[in-house]
Computed example of a mutant assay.
Amino acid sequence: MAPPQKSDEEVAAEFTSYYLQRATKEFAEDLDKVRAADDFKNDALQMLVSALQQGTVLFSPEEQRRIVMASNHPAPKF
């Protein structure tokens, strides 16, 4: 029996979470430098997260669905 299909909203939410996890991991050193800057304020954190989220618009709904489904079913390790 096939698992139930996820709604577009569920896929978009999962993709955004996945994308932010990957982006923060990939740019960890750069993000640490930004956060350590003298002029970085706590209210800038939300703006930084929002800026990172903007990258999700580069992916079509079909690409987001494919990526979410692939990330939920990782390749087997040998």
Rank of each mutant, 00 (worst) to 15 (best):
M1N: 07
A2E: 04
P3G: 10
P4K: 10
K6Y: 03
K6V: 01
K6N: 04
K6Q: 10
S7P: 05
D8I: 04
E9G: 09
E10C: 07
A12L: 10
A13K: 12
F15P: 01
F15A: 02
T16P: 03
T16F: 04
Y18L: 15
Y18F: 12
Y19F: 10
Y19Q: 02
Q21C: 06
Q21F: 03
Q21W: 00
R22H: 08
R22D: 10
T24A: 09
T24V: 10
K25Q: 14
K25G: 11
A28G: 06
D30W: 04
L31I: 15
L31T: 13
K33F: 03
K33H: 10
R35W: 00
R35E: 13
R35Y: 05
A36F: 02
A36Q: 13
D38Y: 00
K41L: 01
N42W: 02
N42T: 05
A44H: 13
L45V: 12
Q46F: 05
L48C: 05
S50Y: 02
S50G: 15
S50Q: 08
A51M: 06
Q53V: 10
Q53S: 14
Q54A: 11
G55W: 04
T56S: 08
T56C: 06
V57Q: 05
L58I: 00
F59W: 09
S60E: 07
E62N: 10
E62A: 15
Q64M: 15
R65H: 02
R66W: 01
R66N: 14
I67A: 01
I67D: 00
V68I: 11
V68A: 08
S71F: 00
N72G: 13
N72V: 04
P74R: 11
A75W: 02
P76W: 06
K77D: 12
K77V: 11
F78W: 07
